[in-house]
């Protein structure tokens, strides 16, 4: 049996997810901007390179954070069908980081 859609809870989730995504993207954007300015102004160097890499890693982790947030929300709503759905997506994303090609 699947719990009925709780419109208000989903609406709240949508706003929370939006804020989370925004925070991730802004953190990444700030790192990337400072890194890129340093890279072009000072030439390739450790400071710029590290900042650029941190920015890109934060960026790649942002969608993962949003999947975790959704997972927590569906578990809290006791919506097990969508909790399982979200868990599967989470597993695939973690595999993308851990598997070696």
């Amino acid at each position: 049996m699947i719990a009925p859609a709780d419109d208000q809870a989903i609406d709240r989730l949508e706003r929370q997810v939006g804020r989370l995504l925004q925070a991730g993207v802004w953190t990444a954007a700030v790192c990337l901007t400072i890194g890129l300015v340093s890279w072009t102004a000072l030439g390739p160097g450790r400071f710029g390179d590290v900042l650029l890499r941190i920015g890109l890693i934060v960026l790649m982790l942002t969608p993962l954070a949003r999947v975790v947030a959704s997972l927590v929300a569906y578990v809290r709503l006791r919506d097990w069908f969508f909790a399982a759905t979200t868990l599967m997506v989470f597993v695939v994303l973690v595999a993308a980081w851990l598997l070696k090609s």
């Binding site: 995504l21 993207v25 990444a28 954007a29 990337l32 901007t33 890194g35 890129l36 890279w39 072009t40 390179d49 650029l52 890499r53 920015g55 890109l56 890693i57 960026l59 790649m60 982790l61 942002t62 969608p63 993962l64 949003r66 999947v67 997506v89 695939v92 994303l93 993308a96 980081w97 598997l99 070696k100 090609s101």
Partner: peptide, 30 residues
């Protein structure tokens, strides 16, 4: 975004990401 996050880490690990180019593109796209 979630879809791209399933393939980007592998490109990153293989060294296919050019950080300055990627940074410039991301800033432009935003």
């Amino acid at each position: 975004g979630v879809t791209a996050a399933a393939s980007a880490p592998q490109y990153f690990a293989r060294g296919d990401v050019n950080p300055p180019v990627a940074a410039a593109a991301v800033i432009g796209v935003l």
